[in-house]
Simulated scan of single mutants.
Amino acid sequence: MDARPNLAPASHGAAALAAPTWGRVRAGRRTADRALKILCALATLLGAVVLGSILLMLIVEGLRGFSLALFTEPTPGPGSEGGGIANAILGSLVMTTLGIVVATPVGVMAGTYLAEYGKTSKLADLIRFLNDILLSAPSILIGLFVYTVMVRTMGGYSGWAGGVALAIIATPVIVRTTEDMLRLVPGPLREAGAALGAPPSLVIRHVTWRAAQAGIVTGILLALARIAGETAPLLFTALNNNSWFSPNLMGGVANLPVMIYQFALSPYENWRQLAWAGALLITVAILALSITARVFLRGGKAR
């Protein structure tokens, strides 16, 4: 006698017992999934509303202060009318350029060493550890460090000290991005260059750097956006100036972040209006840099 017909009812019974339990689990998971999606959507909506309201207020208040004088005249004195922020714009451009010019070669070279030469060595591990500390360090501490090392030594505030402080902030961003981008370059590309008899330095310059150039440029632009709005380190290094600064960058140097901070807290309506205009200007600049960085990174991935 074939025993298989007797096994069929048992298997059907086990399936019948398991079906309700499995159905309840699936329904619970679907309910939890929907609830989590709703919570995430509400949190996203709340964040978008808050961010949108801040940007809308910044645009409305900032556009009121936009005029030709804003870009051609220096900041006015206390209680005076008119004026602009031309000296602050120029000071920010000078110190930001100085910072990124110093940080770029140091960051790219350090990132290249970590990705191509050091890799898992003890020195590379130490550099990564110090780089992570700099990435998470409050910018005000970097400002205090540069104040102790440069400002007190040179006998006063200067744009050089401000540029060095911004360079210290930008360097770890470039180091991390450069290392990550170089690690993404396929190994066969390096092996092909080595097979042709090229030394490692030549392979790095003409193969790996070219393959990762979009990511490296993206890191530089992100570092530039990072330091463009820094206020705390400039308070201890460059301070501010309501007139045109000296060509040698000695003495207080006007800059947008500190100007916005000081003018926003002032009792003068004219100063507060200039602070709104400066805040809008620096926000647009940082947004433009972030968009440019994304375009570079997307173009690099497409290639």
Rank of each mutant, 00 (worst) to 15 (best):
A3S: 08
A10N: 01
A19W: 14
W22C: 11
G23M: 09
R26W: 12
D33G: 14
L36G: 09
I38Q: 11
A41K: 00
A48H: 01
V49E: 09
I59L: 15
E61K: 10
L63R: 07
R64P: 04
R64F: 13
F66P: 02
L68Y: 14
E73K: 13
G77M: 06
G83Y: 03
N87A: 10
I89D: 00
M95A: 02
V106P: 02
G107V: 05
M109V: 14
T112I: 11
T112D: 06
T112R: 07
Y113T: 11
G118H: 00
K122R: 15
L126I: 09
D132K: 02
A137I: 14
P138Y: 03
T148G: 15
T153W: 15
M154G: 07
M154K: 07
M154L: 14
G159T: 06
A161T: 02
G162M: 01
L166M: 08
L166E: 05
I169K: 00
I169T: 08
T171R: 08
P172R: 07
I174W: 00
I174S: 06
I174N: 05
T177L: 13
T178P: 05
E179R: 13
M181N: 07
G187W: 11
V203C: 07
H206V: 03
V207M: 01
R210T: 12
A212M: 11
I220W: 05
A223L: 04
R226K: 10
R226C: 04
P233N: 09
L235H: 02
T237K: 11
L239G: 02
N241L: 10
F245K: 09
N248C: 02
G252L: 05
G252I: 04
P257H: 04
P267N: 04
P267H: 05
N270H: 06
W271N: 00
L274G: 03
L274S: 03
L280G: 05
T283W: 00
V284A: 15
R298F: 06
K301Q: 12
